[in-house]
Simulated scan of single mutants.
Amino acid sequence: MKKPFIITEVIVFLLLFAPLLNLHAQDAAKIDPDHYTVEVDNEKVRVLRINYGPGEESKMHSHPEGVAVFLTDHKANMKTEDGKSFEMAGEKGRVVWVEEARHQPKNVGDQEFEVIQIELKNNHTAAGKKSLHLFELPEGVSEKQLNGFLEEMNAAIAEEGYPGAGYYLYKITDENANYKYFLEGVWPDAATYDKIHDSEKWKNAAAKGGEMIDKIRANELYLKAEKVN
């Protein structure tokens, strides 16, 4: 007999309490590659294959919102950063929506536990703060160079526990525009913006492209914007 109330309890927990958890949990694929394998990673989604043997436990980490597809029956204990924990269980074939979460799972069953998690990226509508840069590419700087630098910056931001935040480069197609490039910085809120920019990982990544960014900043139009509620 199916037991949907168990899954429902998990979803309710994530909806109510995930926003209250410490924001410094990290990317599961970076800190726990033994249990988390990246199957697909593009500008829209990242797909993780998650596999735990009986009794195996992860490290504290974070996930953005997305969809979980359970490939096996499972029984797990989920520890949160405030020291609390709860148990979840479900059957093979379950497909559930999951909100952003930070947790430390442990397989407390006697069978292997496997799940596919589809993490959504670029949920710009949920951004509470944006930084906007309009510019021309300066001499000696190519699109490829700038895009590669932004990928490194976004990787550093994800390692800080914010895989949904970061920088996105666009080429302006309006021939009458004063600028040809548009760089958008996407942040959950103003407080997170400050935390990321004060982090050592962000500062170290930013330093690598310092000369290139200084050239861009010399003639850019730079604005900060916050969501109107």
Rank of each mutant, 00 (worst) to 15 (best):
T37I: 08
T173M: 11
S131W: 01
Y162M: 07
R102F: 02
N219G: 07
G109M: 07
S131G: 11
H124C: 08
E87W: 00
A126K: 11
H63C: 09
L221M: 06
R49H: 15
E81D: 15
P19I: 10
E39W: 03
S85Y: 12
W202L: 00
K144R: 12
Y167I: 07
E56W: 03
E151C: 00
F70W: 08
K59Q: 15
A206K: 05
K201Q: 04
S199E: 03
H103N: 05
E136N: 13
Q104F: 02
W187L: 05
E87T: 10
T173P: 00
V186L: 12
T80E: 05
P105V: 07
R49F: 08
E81I: 07
G185R: 00
E143C: 05
L71R: 01
M153V: 03
L120R: 11
D82E: 12
V108G: 01
V40N: 02
S142N: 11
G209F: 02
N147G: 07
G128K: 04
L134S: 03
K215W: 11
H197D: 01
G166P: 11
G90I: 11
G161M: 12
Q145M: 13
I118M: 06
L146M: 13
V95Y: 01
N77C: 02
E211F: 05
S142W: 05
F17R: 13
V67A: 00
Q117K: 12
K92N: 09
K208L: 12
L20W: 08
P54H: 01
V96G: 04
E91G: 13
I157C: 02
N107Q: 05
L48V: 09
E56S: 01
K92S: 04
L71M: 14
H124D: 13
I11A: 08
L169R: 06
A165I: 02
G53M: 02
D34S: 14
G140F: 07
G128D: 06
H35F: 04
P138V: 02
Q111V: 04
S142K: 09
E99F: 10
A158G: 07
I50L: 11
M1S: 15
I196W: 01
Y179Q: 03
F70R: 04
A29T: 14
Q117N: 14
N123C: 04
V10A: 09
V12A: 13
P188Q: 08
M153Y: 01
S131P: 04
K129Q: 15
Y222I: 10
N204T: 08
G128R: 02
G185D: 13
N154Y: 07
E136H: 07
P163G: 13
D214M: 09
N77G: 00
I50Q: 00
N176D: 12
R49D: 15
K129G: 07
A101S: 12
E119H: 11
P188G: 08
A191M: 08
